[in-house]
Each structure stands twice: as C-alpha cells, then as structure tokens.
Amino acid sequence: MSAAGGGNAIWGRAEQQDFRSRVRGCLLGGAIGDALGSGAAHASLDALRQAHGAEGLTDYAVVFEQRGAITDATQLTLFTVDGLIRAQVRRDTGAWHPPTDLYRAYRRWAVTQHDWGPDERRTDDGWLAREEWLYARRDPARECLSGLGDGVMGTLDAPRNPQANGGGAVMRSAPFGLLVGWEPQLVFQLAVECAAQTHGHPTGYLAAGALAVITHSLARGEDLDSAVQKALAHLATRPGHDETTDALKRALGAVRQGMPTPARVEALGEGGHAGSALAIAVYCALVAEDIRHGLLLAVNHGGASDLTGAMCGNLLGTLHGETALPPVWLVELEGRATVLQLADDFAMEMTQGPALHGPGNSAPGWLARYPRA
C-alpha cells in the first residue's frame, strides 16, 4: 500500500481485505472486552471468584439487564470512528480541522446521554446518532459529561478538566490508530488533542496518544512489542509523560517475570489512572495465548475491568483480525450490527474515499450517512 495521509492511499484487493479485517477486529474486539469487563468492573478478584468460580469471570454477566451489554467505552469509540469519517468528508469543502470534527462527534454522543432518543429534525447528525440503542447511560465518566456539556472545546493550551488523569479519553482512542495512511506522529497528536477535550491531565491525554500509536503499528502489520517501543519513543518527547511511560515499562517488565497471573495484572495498578489502565491492556495482549485468554486476564482484577478489557480487545482485534474473535461472544454482543456497519464504512472511506465523495461529485447516500455540515 502506498499511503499519503487520510484516505488517498492506493490499495490492492488483498490489502483492502486485510485492513477491513483489522478494523472490524479492533472495534468488535474492543466491544467484546468492554462487555466482558462490565460484568467485573470494580469487583475485587475474591468477589469475582466467589461469584463465578476459581477462574473468576469467564463469560458475559447480566449487566444493564442483558448479557453482552457495552458501556460508554464502546459508545464513545463508535463516535470517534464517526467523527473520523466526517472529517474526511468535510475535507472536500476545504475545511480541515479533525479535532473540531471529533469534538462535534463527541457532542453527538453527549446528546445520547440525556435525550430519550434521536431527534429526526437534526438532519445533519448522520446515521450513527439515529441508532436508538445508543441512547442509554452506561456509567459515563463524569469528565466526559462535563467536558462535552457546555459547547466549549478543550485544547492542549486550554484543556478541559486539567486534573483528570483517568481512562475516559484513552478508552475511546484506538480508532485514531486505524488512520494507517497517516504518519504515527500525526496519529499521536490527533489522539492527544481530542483527549484533551475531556481529560486535561498529561497522563489522561498522553495515554490516549500511546494507545493510538500502538494500534497504528498493529494495523500496519507490526508486532506488539515493536508497537509499544514506538509509543514509548513518542511519549519521551512530551512533557508530563513519566506516569504513562513508567506504567508501560512496568507492563513490559511484567512479561519477563513468568506466567501471567491476576496478581501480576493487579500489580500494574488496576487501571487507577489512564497510564496504568493502558499498561494492563498492553500486558494482557502481550502474554495472551489467544484473544479469549487475553481478555479474561484483562477483566479479572479489582479495577476498571470494562476499560482494560475494551483496550485489550482493541489491541488483540487489530493484531489478529476479526476471524480470531471468539464467536460465542460475538453472537450476544449488544449492537454488533451497528459496530460492523461502522467498521465497514470506515474501511471503505479509508480505502476508497475518492470514489465516494469529492469537491465536485459525491454519492448522495454517503453524504446522507456522513453529512458535510
């Protein structure tokens, strides 16, 4: 593939198929990890073992009155993808500021947290915001609600919630890494700028950039260890990186300490801040025998299991593609059809965008789904 930023790549058929599989794997894997983790979130390991047996949680639990229910981690990840597609479409107008397009997408998510359902009068919202199942509160981070609640967009110079170092921004940032035609430093920068819209502490936004760069390397066919090293190199250039860098280095060190155990996962910090949450996801992906093993390791601890499960699923799904995902978890996943549709739309935009829209001529159906306004 020859790529030069944002959708003007020249793709062969096999490369298109591989990319679509990785995009599907990233989004579906993240949603599966989120849904698994929602059944374990903030329960102690002892409590999980008492409730589910010696191995802890091994399957979906009933959460939000159903099995396979996703949380705000998946909701926001989907709106990240929506915003990235909209940014590409708006580029035809000469307007090119992706952080603004992502902010508008996150504001569309914020509407789903207080409205009963989609408002058909908002014709510029696009198709994702009209998905009724997304109009549900799934324990959203208060920083996401406050950062997106008043119409003032945070920036790196004036970030929202400057003390917020939790995982509410990093959990939605894997899709930035699917911009495989971009250079990694641009992927890192975009993820960081968009994370600062809700999480203004350096750990809160730099961990988002690190996840994006790791995902970017995996989507390009690199191995996970090399991807983490690349993220560490990008982090080293940024003020305030120490907490995230140290967490990732502890994850790499834990891999060399022997067989993976829940105790080693919990020693990484239980996802208490964005850096430690990312470290757990990375560690579990590095030691995973397969996706099932990695995800169960990522959710059986006493911390933010939905968050760490989602990110581990993003990484393993991007690394191995959709066909490696456990079908028994796919069939019960809430919103699977929506996730698949969005994944395929994103893959089509990135590989065949010029055939769908341009300054002079565009497919009306595409602009109805992803309006320029």
Rank of each mutant, 00 (worst) to 15 (best):
A310V: 10
P99V: 05
A208M: 06
D92M: 11
S305A: 14
A343Y: 00
E193I: 01
L102N: 02
L342M: 06
D92K: 09
L248Y: 03
A285E: 09
I85L: 11
Q66I: 08
G309L: 08
G200I: 03
S44N: 03
L342T: 02
W11I: 09
L76K: 07
F176C: 06
A51L: 12
L102M: 09
T261D: 10
A195V: 03
R13H: 15
L57R: 00
G117V: 09
W109F: 10
A87Q: 05
G68K: 02
D139K: 09
V265F: 03
R22E: 05
R22S: 07
A40D: 01
D306M: 06
Y106R: 03
P99Y: 02
P118T: 03
A191C: 08
S173P: 02
G25T: 08
R292T: 15
A337E: 14
G29F: 01
A129F: 08
A251P: 03
G269D: 06
I10E: 15
N161C: 11
E349H: 13
W96Y: 14
D290I: 09
T237P: 09
Q16V: 15
Q66W: 10
A169Y: 01
R67T: 09
W96L: 08
C312G: 08
G168C: 05
E55P: 00
G258D: 12
R108C: 06
A363Y: 10
E349Q: 14
G37H: 00
G68L: 10
A208Y: 04
G353R: 00
L36H: 01
E322A: 15
A251L: 07
L295W: 03
R142A: 15
S146T: 14
A288C: 14
Q189W: 07
C312H: 02
R250N: 10
P175Q: 12
V81F: 08
P327Y: 09
C194L: 06
F346W: 05
V287T: 09
H273I: 10
L330V: 12
L78C: 07
P175F: 12
H241L: 04
E131L: 13
E131S: 12
G271N: 04
A263N: 15
V192A: 13
A69N: 01
A174Q: 02
Q257C: 14
F64R: 06
G30T: 05
Q163P: 01
N361S: 12
M171W: 00
Q185T: 13
A40K: 00
R160E: 05
H234S: 12
R142H: 13
A40P: 02
G360T: 15
T58P: 00
